[in-house]
Amino acid sequence: MKLRDYIIRRILLLIPVLIGISFITFFLSHMIGDPAAAWLGEKTIGQEEAVKAIRAAHHLDDPLPIQYFYYLNDLAHFDLGRTGRNEGGRPVIEALKDYFPATLELAILGMGFAIIIGIPLGILSAVFKDKVPDHIVRVLALVGVSMPIFWLGLILKYWFSFKFDIFPLDGRLPYTVLAPPKVTGMYTFDALLAGQFDTFFVALRHAILPSFCLGLITLAILTRMMRSSMLETLTQDFIRTARAKGLSERKVILKHALRNALTPTTTVAGIAFGGLLSGAVMTETIFAWPGIGRFSVKAIGSTDFASIMGFALLIVLFYVLSNLLVDILYVYLDPRVKYG
């Protein structure tokens, strides 16, 4: 099958996946309670009239399947509905457009950290198995996996921003710098596209601590994954063949072992990317990063169905896309894999 056909087929398959996800999230989210009560909060008590009016205004009294039908109908017209009170009732799609690029930017940079640092560390660890570098890397990986993001974020800020003024405390840009013209919504990329290199460096400086913080767990996971798949690959016969050919150790590892060992690591990275997108709320909170994680938590807190659904569908979309990317990468990494 051709790459193009394969991608088209996978994207068509997305439609039933998204419908399925919308079904699950719709009914699950409608179980968390009455949004009218959540919106009014303290003011709920003694205000049945207001609650009734709000329920009527938002069609909350229709039976759930009918509400779901309305939702699907809107979805078919690319209308994700409107946010709740928490976002001032603007269209969900606008809120997603505002917040998602910020998170995507963090996730991409975080993944960058994880790959650029995690994979070499994993290789180093495997090559020096049971020696000092391996012990150091393994301890670091364990620490990385088990460190609470919340705590890590504050520590990073304290040392790298407050004590030694290397990076800014938080935010995406200083308020004195104008955001670059919006193309992707990711400031670093947009600054590059617009050729504003000053803005690019400022935006990058702002993104480094939060993306490192976000990517650390993935970094640690990739390190461990890379170590174990590298160790496994190094026991394979073809590695012995490569050595018997007289290749240097560096060539044996970087040419023959690495590409084989990358396959499982790539799978993990693909799955982890979805996790970075959906699990950024802590990082976003600590670093005052206006991302989709904070939006989703706020939406859940105010029982804002449309926003919760929009968030879930978007994450699923990107999750599937990142896995598609991984599948395509496979074919390049391993000729035994075929589309289909």
Binding site: T241, A244, N260
Partner: peptide, 21 residues
């Protein structure tokens, strides 16, 4: 410099002895 040049080797399982990628 000697391996694969002056002394070379053929292994038991040809299926596994080549790098699959």
């Amino acid at each position: 410099k000697i391996r694969g040049n002056n002394i070379s080797m053929i292994f038991q399982e040809p299926m596994n002895a080549f790098n699959p990628v």
